[in-house]
Design a protein around this nucleic acid. Structure first.
Lengths: 119, 119, 119, 119
DNA sequence: GTGGTCTAGACCACA
DNA sequence: GTGGTCTAGACCACA
């Protein structure tokens, strides 16, 4: 379910965080569903449990999962992370479109991308 | 001409790279113009010369400047970096707009951003 | 009678302890009244009996309940826990008000909170 | 400057976080002053650098310090953490005063504490 | 079994 | 020298 790219410059825990957050946002992992345990995921990915732990801590901190001591980690309701995720995405889009304008990329080119993706 | 933000999480060499590349793209530093010397810039910014060196190496690698041994660094023609820069910007825009769609952000919201920035 | 909030970061036994102690302090569970049995409460809350046991042990230790072997757990007289509970609460209030003063929060702001809660 | 209490139930990284944040809030460590390096503090306290690292990460996350790669950690301006710290302190005060009222502690007793501390 | 903390030690990027 | 990441391995609290 998760692939780690060792050529990727980002740290492993961040890659895992990103992959899992996508699985949650897209609804493949559903609210209140149990996440794989830290240990199991560590074994599956042949990665140290501490590293998984760190990814899970990040997910919890950003409202994607909640931890029940002695029981495990569970997926949060959409409401607890969706607003943040949207806000950050909008900010990135704004930054890159500004960059595009500075590079005198045509407005039409951007608009075409929007149309194509939202078709 | 360049401000370093020590609160910024990016490494210093990356900030310098980014700032200088903007000065070049916007034409404030013009083609074949001489760049400040590594040593002078290091003194001006109170920064380790190695760090400036690294930023310049990145600029050279990405086609923004060229080095003449014993003379210094000079700004390249736009043609040598603009295509790459545009391509990468377009890719990022595409990625983030796809992400926006997956988060069910309205198409209209993205279009408004485009209009606002290109007004 | 008791809701467990799995999003709460505190361990489950502590939540149960806290909820039950409130029921006792507020007089909803009265002196010498029988507490629900460990087993029943465990079933009601779909929780491991060890966890309930642990909450009860804490309640006993702090003078909220007493155990009669073979019979069950019973609520203590107010005298046996109230003094401790008050003392600890006063200490916490003192600590946090000192902290507030160090942060130069206005005396008036604290006084308003007191008035509002005691109205 | 910092004492660790091994009987304290809180994890070491949290104790260090708390002690350092107090030093910052009280102005003993001033804005833009350099923090002790992770390694040095680790040696001073005879504690693993990873643990110090974690305390520093928490301090950064909550706006007490900022990190410059390759240079070290520096104290932030008051504005970047004071609002949060105040808000949290007010919340705690509110919770404990409510608890006091439920224990039928006299309003006068609380008011006396306020007066005494703010005299 | 489940997550959380900590140590010892290595290696890397950055300045 | 400075912080950041990762591993291997231990031990603890909680359910």
């Amino acid at each position: 379910m998760i692939n780690i790219d060792y050529r990727d410059k980002r740290p492993i825990y961040e890659q895992i965080y990103e992959k899992l957050s996508v699985l949650i946002v897209t609804g493949i992992l559903k609210a209140d569903e149990k996440m794989p345990s830290v240990r199991n995921l560590a074994i599956d990915l042949s990665i140290n449990p501490n590293t998984i732990q760190r990814a899970y801590a990040l997910l919890e901190q950003n409202g994607y999962i909640y931890t029940v001591k002695g029981r495990g980690n569970y997926v949060c309701e959409k409401s607890s992370y969706l607003a943040d995720e949207k806000r950050e995405t909008i900010t990135e889009i704004r930054n890159y479109i500004e960059k595009a304008r500075n590079l005198s990329i045509d407005k039409a080119e951007i608009e075409n991308i929007v149309l194509e993706i939202y078709k």
